[in-house]
């Protein structure tokens, strides 16, 4: 089970970037930058304004990833999948929605907010925007490593479920109402995975898995998402 990494896109507290135009990456704790999502889309994208912060973050990072892989333009829908690992998912939208339910016992419940209360909703938005018709879902780990999305994506690619697939993480932090300390840095990082040698663009390296929970990058064991990005950027520079 092997795949080339052909594109990377991210938005973290350290900044916004993609693999082929950046040489530095970090996934620190802290606030996400005040990025303007609209500027990452070549055509007007009014849906962005309707989305919750988690969805906006995820869709924008996926846009960066597709651009990095040279797959951002399309005329026909494509068999490209997406798997996102998340800790908090759409909890922010959940709180926002239920706060529209409480007054007047649901009479003011807002369907536009409810639409984004599934952890996979933003993948649907990305699917619509970029014509991606493959496998897509959100996955949460008991012990978050940030790698579950990549592992699952690699599995689907190997099983022949999808021709290409995006895997990564997306989180905007825990809503303050829960008073739960943020143990996981906010941000979205996605990788485009393709069968080895199928994208004319140079690969950032090869991802490989031989057992559940075990990822290898260019043959070396991997247990940290940030390290993977660093190694990809290092490969690109050399």
């Amino acid at each position: 089970m092997k795949a080339d990494i052909t594109g990377i896109g991210w938005i973290t507290a350290a900044g916004v970037g993609r693999g082929r135009n950046h040489h530095g990456f970090a996934l620190p704790a802290g606030r996400l930058p005040d990025y303007t999502p609209e500027k990452f889309f070549t055509e007007p994208y009014p849906n962005l304004r309707r989305m919750d912060a988690y969805s906006r973050l995820g869709v924008t990072a996926i846009a960066l990833t597709l651009e990095d892989a040279g797959l951002d333009t399309w005329t026909e829908k494509r068999d490209i999948g997406m798997v996102v690992a998340t800790v908090y998912g759409c909890l922010g939208a959940d709180v926002d929605f239920y706060n529209t339910v409480i007054p007047n016992h649901g009479a003011q419940a807002r369907p536009a907010v409810f639409s984004y209360t599934s952890a996979n909703s933003f993948l649907g938005e990305a699917a619509i925007r970029f014509g991606l018709t493959g496998t897509n879902y959100a996955v949460a780990e008991q012990h978050p490593t940030g790698l579950a999305g990549l592992l699952a994506a690699l599995g689907h690619l190997a099983a022949g479920d999808d021709q290409k697939i995006i895997g990564g993480v997306c989180d905007v932090g825990c809503p303050e109402i829960f008073g739960w300390p943020d143990k996981f840095p906010p941000g979205a990082v996605f990788f485009m995975l393709e069968p080895v040698g199928t994208n004319p663009r140079p690969s950032f390296g090869t991802l490989h898995s031989t057992s559940p929970g075990q990822l290898l990058f260019d043959g070396s064991p991997l247990d940290d998402l940030a390290v993977l990005v660093d190694q990809c950027l290092s490969n690109q520079a050399s």
Binding site: G89, S118, S121, A138, V139, A140, E141, A152
Partner: peptide, 16 residues
């Protein structure tokens, strides 16, 4: 013993 996961994909979650 392993690191369990939970899939969420709306009403197709458990089929997936």
């Amino acid at each position: 013993k392993g690191n369990g996961t939970c899939i969420s994909a709306s009403c197709a979650s458990s089929a997936i």
